[in-house]
Design a protein around this nucleic acid. Structure first.
Lengths: 202, 202
DNA sequence: TCGCGACAGTACCGATCGGTACTGTGACAG
DNA sequence: CTGTCACAGTACCGATCGGTACTGTCGCGA
């Protein structure tokens, strides 16, 4: 095995990856060239193409690393919250803080899959990202002893992704709180155990 | 007033606009050049630049027209549905059909605002689009006699936008039904009049 | 019949794109 | 001291970008 990278090589690779992630997020994949990435990262194109065979694969590596980091962060942070429904809702509290960060422009995964519509590798990373997200939510919901966890997890994910989109378009963070309130109601309905419909409620 | 366009001029303009809308939706704004648009539309660049001063403004015109058309379509179709909560839910039925169309790649407004992140004109069109969407939902909710219409409208919009994103990434249409079921529960909770929380439900 | 204007088509412009080749330099191992 | 390797920097490649200029043609109104 000679394909292991030395510490300094890892540092160069990471520097390029971090710079690319920041620029891609700020302005979009198509609007940022490799020349700008290496200039900003104080690296050379030779280094970039040593670690990433093409711009496409640089984008894929960036997105994979980002998805992994977000997933680990969510797992760790929600584990700190008190058990029960509050732990499920803690996901929304994390997101509300995230949305409020200056320069928030929506979910990196969603933006990147939109930027690179024809790339099946990017699409696969995005599908995996959503699947892991649902898996995390489902686990937290089951821990809270709530029924119909798979469906609830899928529904909460809709609120999360919707809030991310609306926040980035509206420029306000209200959508985060709206999503949390909606999630609270959906969880409450599940705790009541029934499947009330509009008709049945009349 | 000599700035009115003759019927044949309107036809040329519309042909370019429709072709641009289709190509931009399929592959993204940055991935489609003006040469390809005029070739596909069987027009000339001279015609394109006669009616649209730049590619940016062509994109803006396309998005404005698209937003108007979607809004009119939603108003008209939901007006056909029976009054009451079912009319609110009819929005989701329309979207479920829409998501199932072959080649569905997400909401044009969201995709375009992601593609052209730095363009304030596009961002303004997108904000207006969401505001009209919320206004429509709010009206339908009020017609159904449900309380807390503004908040409910904002929450339903999160479900709609979230479902659009998830459908386009997952490649399945399940998210539409999930969004409808979640909306049904939120409407039922509003009809019960209370504001139940997870804590209060214990 | 004549003339005007919208038209499709094409050649072209400068700029920028992703990607390659090649410089010289500095660090480190034998 | 010497060879090696990763490095930053730069010049360069063909291709494509948005946008302009200029053909010749067609249709319509006077």
């Amino acid at each position: 095995m000679t394909d292991a990278l030395s510490p300094s090589q890892q540092a160069t690779r990471a520097k390029i990856l971090d710079t690319a992630a920041r620029l891609f997020y700020d302005r979009g994949v198509h609007a940022v060239g490799v020349n700008e990435i290496v200039a900003e990262a104080k690296a050379s194109k030779l280094s970039l193409y040593r670690y990433f065979p093409s711009k496409e694969q640089l984008v894929a590596a960036m997105l994979t690393e980002h998805s992994d980091r977000i997933h680990d962060w969510l797992v760790r942070k929600t584990a700190d919250a008190p058990a029960g429904p509050e732990r499920v809702l803690s996901v929304f509290d994390l997101l509300i803080d995230w949305f409020a960060q200056p320069g928030y422009q929506g979910c990196t995964v969603v933006n990147t899959v939109t930027d690179t519509r024809a790339d099946p590798a990017i699409a696969a990373i995005a599908r995996r990202h959503l699947a892991r997200y649902r898996h995390l939510l489902e686990g937290r919901i089951q821990e809270a002893g709530l029924a119909d966890a798979p469906r609830l997890a899928r529904q909460l994910l809709l609120l999360i992704e919707g809030a991310s989109v609306v926040v980035s378009i509206d420029g306000t963070t209200d959508a985060g709180a709206d999503a949390r309130a909606a999630a609270e109601r959906l969880l409450a309905a599940a705790r009541q155990g029934g499947h009330p419909t509009v008709q049945a409620a009349g």
